[in-house]
Amino acid sequence: MTPAHAADPALVDAIADRAHAVRQRIAEAADRAGRDPADVTLVAVTKTRPIETVRAAVAAGLRDLGENRVGELVDKSDALPGEGDGGDVRWHLIGSLQRNKARDAAARADLFHALDSVRLARALDKWAAEAGRVLPVLVQVNISGEDAKHGVEPDATADLLGVAAECAHLRPVGLMGMAAIAEDPGDLDRVVRPAFQKLRRLFDAEPGLTVLSMGMSGDFEVAVEEGATHVRVGTALFGPR
């Protein structure tokens, strides 16, 4: 019988096998781009997954964990504290955030990927100050041009980075973006790659940035080829929801 709070060995093995395969694909993409695969952080997207799966992911060697919703982040970081709370995992809040949830986000996230407005920056700064911490943030840019996607317009990127830099309890460290979903393999070059190239140009234009978060299960290899430092992968690690 598996002890309480211990990870299921079979689940650990399954996730470890998938993680190995994903890392191999990252390494191959990095090699094609002349990059060091060690420069790419694999963020395991654990949204909607039970805490048992998260424990198994950690036991399988995954240390960067991504959540979309603040409530899930709070519950899971209660069980597995992040670096900011003295733990040995890093919690990435990767989903869009309403200002009324900014307090928990500022207190719990080790990196917030989805800063998309001045008002949200002010709210996060306020609550990070209350929590006695400096919150690293990424400005989310709408690189797909889709109305349904969150993020600032590309030409507003520098302005929002500037606002975040003026906030004493925020530390802007990079950019995040999502490409349109590739409907067929040809879309990876026709649609996805140009979007990632756009984000990379914006990233390169801002000195001092270190994190370029782009790429998910369906397109992370293209993202790595185009310079991603962080890829956000869920389905390829944990299977379909």
Rank of each mutant, 00 (worst) to 15 (best):
F238I: 04
V54C: 03
A228Q: 04
S117L: 01
A179M: 02
L65D: 12
F112V: 11
P81W: 10
A59P: 07
A16D: 11
E52T: 14
G82Y: 10
T157H: 03
L199D: 13
P37N: 09
G66R: 02
V43W: 08
N68I: 07
L209T: 10
A10S: 13
V152Q: 00
R133G: 11
D104G: 05
T2I: 15
A180G: 15
V163I: 15
V118N: 05
Q98N: 10
E221F: 01
D187W: 01
A158W: 08
Q98F: 09
S96F: 10
L138C: 14
V141W: 11
A223C: 04
D125L: 04
L11E: 14
W91E: 08
V70E: 14
E83S: 14
V137Q: 04
R49M: 13
P9K: 00
F238L: 06
L202P: 08
L65F: 09
R201K: 13
V222F: 00
A121Y: 04
M178F: 14
E221M: 02
H92K: 00
L80G: 09
D85Y: 01
R200L: 04
G95T: 01
A16T: 08
D13C: 00
G208M: 06
P194F: 07
R35D: 12
D88F: 06
L80Y: 12
E166G: 15
S213C: 06
R99N: 15
A223D: 09
A148Y: 02
A168Y: 12
L175R: 00
I143M: 05
G86S: 04
T48H: 11
P154D: 12
D8V: 04
A109C: 10
A10Y: 08
V222H: 02
A44M: 05
A4R: 02
V211Y: 03
G227W: 07
A168T: 14
D184E: 15
H20G: 13
E221H: 04
E146H: 01
V74S: 07
I15S: 05
A131C: 00
G66A: 03
S117V: 06
L93I: 12
L237G: 08
D159M: 09
R90C: 11
L188I: 11
V89T: 10
A79L: 13
A102G: 01
K149Q: 13
M178V: 11
V173R: 09
P154V: 00
A123H: 07
E226D: 14
H169L: 09
I51R: 08
A19W: 03
V40P: 11
N68K: 03
V139T: 03
V141N: 10
V141G: 07
W127T: 10
E146G: 02
E52D: 15
V134F: 00
I15N: 06
G34Q: 10
A38E: 15
L199Q: 06
R35E: 14
R35Y: 09
A131I: 01
A165Q: 13
L93D: 11
D36G: 04
Q24V: 04
V233P: 11
A180T: 15
E72H: 04
T157N: 01
K47C: 07
R108G: 10
R25K: 11
G95S: 03
D125G: 13
Q140V: 08
R103S: 15
G239Q: 06
A129C: 09
L209V: 10
P136M: 02
G95H: 02
G145Q: 05
L93N: 06
D116M: 01
I94F: 02
D39K: 01
A109F: 08
A59S: 12
V43A: 01
S77D: 14
P194Q: 03
